[in-house]
């Protein structure tokens, strides 16, 4: 109980800190690296929650594939220093106030309002393993799984079309 708690608190602190780092850092590269750290922390949290397959997929897909793609794009476009000053004076203030309000609402729901959450039972053996996930994925969710492949194909084609070289014709 207590080691779990300590581990969670540590992980939570790292996750929030890295997220804030992502949010606040000047450079896009630092933001990306902060985000990688955040994703890794969250992956450990997944393990903690009995989802080893998802945790590994998280590291592979997010930290491995997506964030690398981000870094490539950042390097491709160059790290741009944006102009200071915003065209929207109230934007930042309103956003922070709304965010705090959302957090307050969440806190109210979770901690103050009496909630009847079911007692968490210990994890069964084999819960969340690749075998179990594969079992349910290829039986119950076969059709969405196949549709996912189409989705990925479309995304690939869309990316190629969007970034592909245009004919000079569009200049006109």
């Amino acid at each position: 109980m207590i080691p779990d708690m300590i581990l969670f608190i540590l992980l939570a602190i790292v996750a929030v800190t890295s997220a804030l780092g992502m949010l606040l850092s000047r450079s896009a590269v630092y933001s990306a690296l902060n985000l990688v750290l955040n994703f890794g922390t969250v992956a450990v949290l997944y393990l903690l929650l009995g989802a080893p397959f998802i945790a590994l997929a998280q590291i592979t897909v997010y930290a491995g594939a997506i964030m690398v793609l981000f870094l490539f794009v950042i390097m491709l476009l160059g790290v741009e220093q944006l102009r200071k000053g915003s065209a929207l004076p109230w934007q930042q203030t309103l956003a922070i106030i709304s965010g705090l309000l959302l957090l307050a609402l969440t806190a109210y729901v979770i901690f103050i309002r009496p909630m009847t959450l079911p007692q968490v039972s210990p994890t069964q053996l084999g819960f969340g393993t690749p075998g179990a996930i594969g079992e349910i994925l290829f039986n119950k969710y076969l059709l969405p799984f196949e549709v996912t492949s189409v989705l990925l194909l479309v995304a690939m084609i869309g990316a190629i079309v969007l970034t592909g070289k245009r004919e000079p014709k569009t200049k006109t």
Partner: peptide, 22 residues
């Protein structure tokens, strides 16, 4: 500004959630 529109969404979401919860 797209951020501005997103802020409108967000304020709307907070308000609606607040109404639903409270």
């Amino acid at each position: 500004y797209v951020r501005n529109y997103a802020l409108s969404f967000f304020i709307g979401v907070v308000l609606i959630l607040g109404y639903l919860i409270l």
